[in-house]
Amino acid sequence: MSDHEELESTVAAWVLGALEPDEAASIRVHVEGCATCRQTVARLRRAAAALPLEVEEISPPARLRERVYVAAAAARASSVPSAPARKKVVPARGRWKPVASIPFGRLPALLAVASVVLALLIGLAAGNVIGRNSVPPAAAQVARYQLVGHGALAGAHGTVVNLKVEGVALVDFNGLPPLAKGKVYELWLITPGGHPDSAAVFVPDSNGGKVVLVGLPLTGYTEMAVTAEDAPNGSPTPSQPPELYGNLG
């Protein structure tokens, strides 16, 4: 068998990604210089491209939509520098103010607002992909900050996406450890004077992830923090120093 025949017999495996790196490199070089093999490769690639179409569609979980939108919004805001490393927040109990939880009746409306804003952001980003370029910069409307875990929450982190125009924010949490029975996580917004206002309570999914809607404008707050509090409604004041926190700006 000639070198050409030997290599030509392997192009299907190459097209399917079924070669070791060194084998793939040899085939690539050969195909680039062989018109016959280039034609074969083009034909087989079109066939290979059809393979995923045999798979029956599966509706992904609804939360994936939220995650994708938050990630896209965060990416759009990536030109905004992240908050610098912050000093450790150890709030003195006496300084924490009573909280104002989000009334549950407001949540559908807030979710709708957030959806519209996120849809707009996604639309802008997708518009770039398909060649539309008459979009305003999104960075002025969206800011992103990071929450970093410490201590028992050392593996956890959160990305805050502040949708300034609508006065709401989304926080995409990952790596949160499971809660003890009878506990929920509570999200706090902290004023420059060290007063925490409750922004939301939540329970992460089995993978330690959760997208949380903050239905309060972040204006006037300098920090965001998370503590574990009693279920189901959390605590009016934090019962412990936070181990997941970050600066807002």
């Binding site: 995923p52 179409l53 798979v55 029956e56 569609e57 599966i58 509706s59 992904p60 994936l64 939509r65 994708v68 849809a119 996604i122 639309g123 997708a126 992909v129």
Partner: peptide, 13 residues
């Protein structure tokens, strides 16, 4: 959004 709605099912599958 439209892109996600159209291809999320196939991508996830």
């Amino acid at each position: 959004m439209e892109l996600y709605d159209r291809y999320a099912g196939l991508s996830y599958a």
